[in-house]
Design a protein around this nucleic acid. Structure first.
Lengths: 108, 108
DNA sequence: GGCTACATGTAGCGTTTCTACATGTTGGCT
DNA sequence: AGCCAACATGTAGAAACGCTACATGTAGCC
């Protein structure tokens, strides 16, 4: 899978895993890896800035905690985040229809 | 649809419409618009540079012609372009599976 | 004369993902 | 003790590419 095919699609995916349960960054990485069947192995340099961006945008809220001597920043969806996720899901459906509408004819 | 959701997905779409029939830039725009049900209305500043990029990469070959006093650059797929399109289609399937695997749980 | 559709192109911006680096803890293996 | 993997978070800088805005010109209709 090409590197930046993700562009614009990562945000709703992050919001989706956080919606299911509040998680910290590392756990979000694992959740994405699991839900994608091992395909989506984000580098930390992608995930952590993305989380900060989503928080800055008001879609996520974070809280520090310490578990087993390790510091975790746990994220949860804000109400704006819920709305954004819903929007993202419908936008995905549109996008998927567009791509497949163009790619579809004579797909072997 | 967000601006750069297209990133990395535009190339196979262009190759797909050119595969069906060799077309010039303007006609490619129209074909994309039609196949996408009016959703994919590319600005010329996106399409023309993309075509040049695809030609430079060896996936398209172009030829000038004049029709009704208008100059057209008509593009057709090279054999590398055919392969790239096939690759792009399978990559799309993977990508789609990844996104939907992540987004799917509890989609209302 | 002016407008719309046809037709191609460039310059520069902005966003986001990536690579590479930086730091520190816990626990298991040898 | 020493080492390494997994856990955990983060920053700096580069690269890619789609977008806006601009630039140019023809054909045909009102």
């Amino acid at each position: 899978m090409k590197a930046d095919a993700l562009r614009g699609h990562l945000d709703p995916m992050i919001l989706a895993v956080v919606e299911a349960a509040p998680l910290h960054g590392y756990a979000i990485m694992e959740a994405l890896l699991e839900r994608s069947g091992g395909e989506l192995d984000l580098p930390t340099g992608t995930l952590y800035p993305a989380l900060r961006r989503l928080e800055r945008a008001g879609y996520l809220a974070s809280e520090w905690s310490t578990v087993g001597g390790r510091k975790r920043r746990t994220y949860q969806l804000t109400s704006a985040g819920h709305k954004m996720l819903a929007t993202g899901k419908t936008e995905w459906q549109t996008f998927r229809a567009v791509v497949e509408g163009v790619l579809r004819p004579d797909t072997p």
